[in-house]
């Protein structure tokens, strides 16, 4: 009997650790596998690649963490990113003849992307809160709308940024400070600010309160409508930021831009320990989740171990495993 109880105690202690450390352990395990499989895995180039390509989904996923914590969901972010990228490229191309290939055009392009993100987020938010439609349905609708709009803008083809502008704008993705490229820096800033807002501000606490019980939150004088709308606006703005980093990479947008980004962002949020039903959010967990997803793809590309047909299956297994690890912990505690 005494052995059984000590066992139980020890196991419970481990489970609590798993709940918090689950995603980190999965990340460390992946890094270990990567090192074992390929000596270039830890090279400066590869690490920069993985972090920089994580930045788009990562920046969006930080915003998604707030939406999901407040009990919402946004399926439109991938299409929204494609639409904003298309809009931004069109605006910049239109301005080149009058303003020349100048910094001003880039700044206006960035302003257009951020403003479009804000408006698109506000539309989602207001339809959810004011019109009282389910977030799933609203954003499923806007997902289709934005995807069609970008296809229409591009005439079914690809929108490409003016060649000279592309050269001028290129450093925003490829250059950086002290060898750390801009997308990584922006991702880090967004993640740190997100973590602070989630943990140390009234807005973050209100999100969690609304997500766990909206009625109780309303009785506790939380401005439910306003906070919920703000989460969608915040997410929209962050989609704008992600697009600002995305466009300089290849200087183009098409109907296939941002395909399935919404699901990757949602998966990253859930792997990170945020509860899909809302009520609890963890921004640093989301960052870990994004890195896990990127690393799986990276490692699969660096080896021949698995048939490329099975990449999706491996990703699926790891996503489920990462969540199972922490859910076991959370049910015990």
């Amino acid at each position: 009997m005494s052995t059984a109880s000590t066992n139980a105690g020890a196991r419970r202690g481990m489970k609590i650790d798993l709940h918090v450390l689950g995603p980190i352990l999965a990340l460390v395990a992946l890094i270990g596998i990567g090192i074992a499989l390929n000596s270039n895995f830890l090279s400066y180039g590869n690490i920069t690649n993985v972090l920089a390509r994580s930045a788009f989904i990562g920046i969006i996923a930080v915003g998604m963490t707030f939406v999901i914590t407040a009990g919402g969901l946004d399926l439109s972010v991938g299409s929204m990113a494609a639409f904003i990228a298309g809009l931004m490229i069109l605006c910049m191309n239109l301005l080149v003849p009058s303003m020349g290939q100048s910094l001003g055009v880039i700044l206006i392009g960035i302003a257009v992307a951020l403003a479009a993100g804000l408006v698109a987020g506000a539309i989602n938010g207001l339809l959810v809160t004011r019109a009282g439609i389910e977030a799933f349905i609203v954003t499923l609708g806007t997902m289709g709308i934005y995807r069609s709009l970008v296809t229409w803008l591009a005439d079914g083809g690809t929108l490409s940024l003016d060649y000279g502008m592309r050269e001028l704008y290129r450093p925003v993705y490829y250059d950086g400070i002290l060898g750390v490229s801009w997308p990584i820096i922006v991702f880090a800033i967004v993640a740190i600010l997100g973590e602070i807002v989630m943990r140390h501000t009234a807005f973050g606490r209100h999100c969690a309160a609304i997500g766990s019980n909206e009625t109780v939150a309303r009785y506790s004088t939380v401005a439910v409508t306003r906070v919920k709308t703000l989460t969608y606006i915040l997410l929209g703005c962050l989609v704008g930021v992600a697009v600002v980093m995305y466009v300089p990479r290849l200087g183009s947008a098409s109907a296939s831009t941002g395909l399935l980004w919404e699901l990757e962002a949602i998966a990253a949020v859930i792997i990170g320990g945020t509860v899909l039903k809302g009520g609890f959010g963890r921004v640093w967990g989301t960052v870990v989740g994004v890195l896990i997803l990127s690393l799986i793809g990276n490692i699969l590309n660096l080896t021949d171990m698995v048939s490329p047909y099975l990449n999706g299956a491996i990703q699926g297994v790891i996503i489920i495993l990462a969540v199972v690890l922490q859910r076991k912990g959370s049910t015990a505690t």
Binding site: N40, G45, L250, L259, N301, L302, N311
Partner: peptide, 23 residues
């Protein structure tokens, strides 16, 4: 040396090629 799916997409091909170059 290797074959991977870039899914006829610019972004996927960019990512796969980056990894081929590291490898």
């Amino acid at each position: 040396l290797a074959m991977e799916h870039g899914n006829w997409s610019r972004d996927d091909a960019f990512t796969v090629m980056q990894d081929f170059l590291s490898r």
